[in-house]
C-alpha cells in the first residue's frame, strides 16, 4: 500500500463521488502523492473529512460540490478548474449508484437513475475533460467499472449493464483519444469493504468472501493504488484496459 509518494506531483486531478468509499480513498491517496485534487461531492459538508487533509499531505484537496448528472453544473466545475489551474491531467469517474433487484421487479425509474449516474454522467464528464486535455495533448481518464460489468451477477441486471457500458465506452474512448495522448482505462473492483458492501449483512458478506481466491474483501485503498498507477506517468503506454482489482474473485 502506498502511503505517500510524489508520483502525482504537479498533476491536477478531478475525482467524482469523493465523499466516501473508493472515491474518498482515491482522493486521499492522490493528495498524498502530491496531486492537486478537485474532490467532488453532492452535498456541502460531505467532503469535510477529506478537506482536513490539507496541510497534512504533499498535495491539496479542493472541494467541488455538484451533482454529476447536472450537465450545467459539471461544465461550471470544469471551467473553475480551467480558470484556477489552466489544465486537467486526470479525471476519475467514480460516482456511481447501485439499485439491486431481481428480474421482474426492476422499475423503469431505477433503470433510468442508474444509467443517468453510472453511464450518461460518465460520458458527460469525459467529454468535458477531453476539452481541457486536448489542449495540453495529454491526460488520463480512469473509469470505475466493476467485476459484475464483465461477469454479471444475480440481482444486478441494471447495475451490471451500466458497468458493462462503462467498459465498452472506455475502450471506444481510448481508441478515439489515443492520437491526442489521452489515455482511458477502467478499474473493475470486486468485493470491496465499503459501507455499501457492509449494508448487505454479515451472512451475505461471508458468502461473497468465500468466492474470493484471496479469501477477504479488498480495501478502497487497494483500488486507489491501482488508480495511482493509471493516473501517473508509470502507465504512459497503457490505454483501453480494464484492470480487475478483485483478489481473484469468481462470481
Amino acid at each position: 500500500m502506498i502511503s505517500s509518494c510524489d508520483l502525482l506531483k504537479n498533476k491536477v486531478c478531478l475525482v467524482t463521488g469523493a465523499s466516501r468509499g473508493i472515491g474518498y480513498a482515491v482522493a486521499k491517496r492522490f493528495a498524498a502523492c502530491g496531486a492537486a485534487v478537485y474532490a467532488n461531492g453532492r452535498r456541502e459538508e460531505s467532503l469535510k473529512e477529506l478537506l482536513s487533509l490539507n496541510g497534512n499531505c504533499s498535495g491539496s484537496v479542493i472541494p467541488l460540490y455538484f451533482d454529476v448528472t447536472d450537465s450545467a453544473a459539471a461544465k461550471k466545475a470544469m471551467m473553475q478548474i480551467k480558470k484556477e489551474q489552466g489544465k486537467l491531467d486526470v479525471l476519475v469517474n467514480n460516482a456511481g449508484i447501485m439499485k439491486d433487484a431481481l428480474i421482474g421487479m426492476i422499475s423503469k425509474e431505477d433503470m433510468h437513475q442508474v444509467f443517468e449516474v453510472n453511464v450518461f454522467a460518465v460520458m458527460d464528464m469525459l467529454q468535458l475533460a477531453v476539452k481541457l486535455m486536448s489542449r495540453q495533448n495529454s491526460g488520463s481518464i480512469i473509469n470505475l467499472a466493476s467485476i459484475v460489468g464483465t461477469n454479471g451477477n444475480r440481482g444486478q441486471m441494471v447495475y451490471s449493464a451500466s458497468k458493462g457500458a462503462v467498459i465498452s465506452l472506455t475502450k471506444t474512448a481510448a481508441k478515439e483519444l489515443a492520437s491526442r495522448h489521452i489515455r482511458v482505462n477502467a478499474v473493475a473492483p470486486g468485493v470491496i469493504d465499503t459501507d455499501m458492501f457492509r449494508s448487505i449483512g454479515e451472512e451475505k458478506m461471508k458468502e461473497k468472501i468465500n468466492l474470493i481466491g484471496m479469501n477477504r474483501a479488498g480495501t478502497p485503498e487497494e483500488v486507489a493504488d491501482t488508480c495511482i498507477y493509471l493516473a501517473s506517468d508509470l502507465s504512459v503506454y497503457v490505454t483501453g484496459q480494464v484492470i480487475g482489482v478483485d483478489g481473484c474473485e469468481v462470481i
Binding site: K75, M78, M79, K82, Q127, L128, K131, S134, R135
Partner: peptide, 17 residues
C-alpha cells in the same frame, strides 16, 4: 474539434454539445 477548441480558448468559454 480544433475549431471548437480555438474558439473556446479565444473567448474563455466552454461550448455546449
Amino acid at each position: 474539434m480544433n475549431l471548437v477548441a480555438a474558439l473556446e480558448e479565444a473567448f474563455d468559454i466552454m461550448m455546449d454539445t
